[in-house]
């Protein structure tokens, strides 16, 4: 009896964790598919400068640790657990990306190791992101006041801004690899760009504060409209812009462009990034 109880007690958490891992694979595939099936992403695996790719892998890992805090595929209490979760999530993302790229025939046996690793490395970013947020998206409602628990953890200006960064990164990364980002930049006049900035700001503000999406923010008590606008909306848009620039730079999309072109391309990418920042609460 005692042995049986002990063994059951030991397999319980492992089984629970295995379910979490299975969900993580599901999330990796769901969030990875649009990019796994994007041609530019395969060539970016070869053409991205290795140093920039390394920096991006490190940045992604830090974001994963943060995501584990706010979502993750299991409840965490300490930074150590968040790091373990981020490592496991990255592993799931790498395995899922490698498996699907191999299935598509994008990875072939006669390709050199560098090509394999580069292709998997760029794709493991969206896949690992999906793996980390799978819990929120795929878990059945298990109640236990988990939402309040999350609310508590996300509370605070820093937490909000981090979520915006994660949301902006995800949506920006999803469209940044395509040729269209630069092409749209070429087609737009400076007036178009200014209008796009205004629309992005408005959309960010409206999505977060006005239309009543799930997870919508209430204005902080005692904060006026203007202070809220500056502290969250403008800050959120600034994050979206910086994230956009960083992703464009990583993919070499800013190399050799004139300053005005870089600015216009950044506003193009900041549009989806701002939407991503606004709906981060829904997704993460």
């Amino acid at each position: 009896m005692a042995i049986e109880t002990a063994s059951r007690g030991r397999s319980g958490p492992n089984q629970l964790y295995a379910r979490g891992l299975a969900r993580a694979f599901g999330g990796a595939i769901i969030f990875g598919i649009p990019l796994l099936m994007t041609m530019e992403m395969w060539s970016l695996g070869v053409s991205t400068q290795p140093a920039r790719l390394l920096l991006f892998i490190a940045f992604n890992f830090v974001v994963l640790v943060g995501l584990s805090r706010f979502g993750g595929f299991e409840r965490t209490d300490t930074l150590g657990e968040d790091i373990l979760d981020a490592l496991a999530g990255y592993g799931v993302g790498i395995i899922a990306a490698a498996a699907i790229l191999a299935l598509f025939g994008v990875l072939m046996m006669d390709m050199p190791l560098d090509e394999w690793v580069g292709k998997i490395a760029v794709q493991s970013v969206p896949c690992s992101f999906g793996a980390l947020i799978a819990r929120k998206q795929l878990a059945d409602a298990d109640g236990n006041g988990e939402e309040e628990e999350r609310e508590r953890r996300v509370s605070g200006h820093g937490g909000e801004l981090f979520l915006m960064l994660a949301g902006a990164l995800f949506l920006a990364f999803n469209v940044a690899p395509t040729e269209e980002m630069v092409l749209i930049g070429y087609m737009m006049s400076p007036w178009h760009a200014l209008a796009l900035v205004a629309v992005s700001l408005l959309l960010l503000h409206v999505l977060v504060y006005a239309i009543g999406l799930a997870g919508q923010e209430q204005r902080a008590e005692g904060w006026g409209r203007i202070r809220t606008f500056v502290s969250y909306t403008v800050a959120g848009y600034a994050i979206a812009l910086v994230v956009s620039l960083y992703v464009l730079w990583t993919f070499g999309r800013t190399d050799g462009l004139a300053l005005e072109q870089i600015a216009i391309t950044a506003t193009v990418l900041a549009f989806p990034a701002a939407v991503g920042a606004a709906i981060a609460r829904l997704v993460v």
Binding site: L21, F61, A86, L87, A88, G89, G91, V92, I94, V117
Partner: peptide, 16 residues
């Protein structure tokens, strides 16, 4: 799972 993730990540970083 985390150990495997760490190994894969290190391989990625090593090669790149």
């Amino acid at each position: 799972a985390s150990g495997l993730g760490l190994v894969l990540l290190l391989v990625l970083i090593g090669v790149i």
